[in-house]
Design a protein around this nucleic acid. Structure first.
Lengths: 213, 213
DNA sequence: GCATCTACGCGAACAGACTCGCATAGGACC
DNA sequence: GGTCCTATGCGAGTCTGTTCGCGTAGATGC
């Protein structure tokens, strides 16, 4: 299953591989459309397969689980978030502000699709599955990016030098993650979710910022 | 399904209701045992039913979903955590220390059962399901208890009066929740998880504590 | 051309959570 | 005791993600 390390004689552009890529693309497209139409749980694998023009079992040639189909979207979205942030980022702004901006950009992208957040979290609760690792790797990546921002703040004495930037990044990330859960369950509106995130970040930054004693 | 509001003539202790309670108890016992033996996903509903001495479908007279069986354990465990904390709590200790103690107690209880954490989180990703609401209610309850502790710290000027205790409680809770995810996935040991929780809490408290200017 | 290899695809199954319609037993009311 | 009511239990069936074994087409080596 899945790309799989090309066993021995790896052909660069075998006709079969090209066909496979096209199939994969069709599957992803169909999945994305159906996820949006009926939600993750409502979108049946058989339906996805039908729309992609193939049998249900064939999907498993290209994907390890249904969740993986959604997680790919998440990975893309995360890259997009970072790209947008980079584009509008001003490195000389205060660190707190930069973090706020990144989280706002990320939030705006995630808000478009409630299932994405929920299913990513769900995937995280299946320790045996590959997807779980994948999602956790995405988490790590986001935290790494936050570390980058924080570190820069530290070297220019924007942050208290005593703070552990890795722990700080973790805390920031987990605050945003946790704040999204009630939203994903429809208990709070998207903007209330964002406000909660920002309040948490501000709270944390009270302790992170350099004391101007 | 489920207790259901007794329609009109509610009999206090009908023989049938008593039987139902006994069944419920057997189901819960069987479920708990099997969850521990084979894990949540490994424990088949049919197996649970068999051990409880009934058919698989009968379980649904007493429970809305398999997850609900586990969530009941979580609710109990949470009560237990609070009870233990109350027992050993010293109200005159600094707020930060009290929070640390509570989280440590909670951690010790949760650590005994990895699935509990994972499945509770998973339940959270099914917005339509009752269980999701139930778990979120448990979250709220824990946050409420944290608010209680924080509030007490505030009135005695242990905390900066400017901080929003509710937001602080949320942040604290989310930090602990997030820190448990890698642990639930077997990526970090239990004590590393606890350390991460404590580091996050300390970080947050740097900003919460009253400035001794 | 021929044999061989292999990425794809398929239909048939499997497993496991959950639903449905029906049966039963214990109570209540008369 | 007879009649109705209803909480409980059950077996058969549904739905859906996933696996299995087989067939096929395209590529490669000779």
């Amino acid at each position: 299953m899945q790309p799989r390390p090309p066993d021995r004689t790896l052909r660069p552009d075998d006709g079969r591989l090209a066909r496979g890529r096209r199939s994969r693309a069709r599957i992803r497209e169909a999945a994305r459309a159906l996820f949006r139409e009926r939600g993750f749980d409502g979108a049946t694998l058989r339906a996805i397969a039908a729309r992609a023009g193939m049998g249900a079992s064939s999907i498993y040639r290209h994907v390890q689980s249904k969740e993986e189909l959604l997680i790919e979207e998440l990975a893309d979205l995360q890259e997009e978030a970072w790209r947008r942030f980079r584009a509008e980022d001003a490195r000389d702004r205060p660190t707190r502000e930069r973090v706020h901006r990144f989280l706002r950009v990320q939030h705006e992208l995630l808000v478009a699709d409630r299932d994405l957040t929920a299913i990513a979290l769900r995937a995280t609760t299946r320790p045996e599955a590959r997807v779980a690792r994948r999602v956790l790797a995405l988490h790590d990546r986001t935290m790494g990016l936050l570390v980058e921002v924080l570190q820069m703040g530290r070297v220019r004495h924007d942050l208290d030098p005593e703070v552990d930037v890795l722990e700080a990044a973790r805390a920031l990330f987990h605050i945003t993650l946790g704040a999204r859960i009630p939203w994903a369950n429809g208990l709070v509106q998207a903007d209330a979710c964002l406000q909660s995130i920002q309040a948490g970040v501000d709270l944390l930054f009270r302790g992170l910022s350099a004391r101007q004693s």
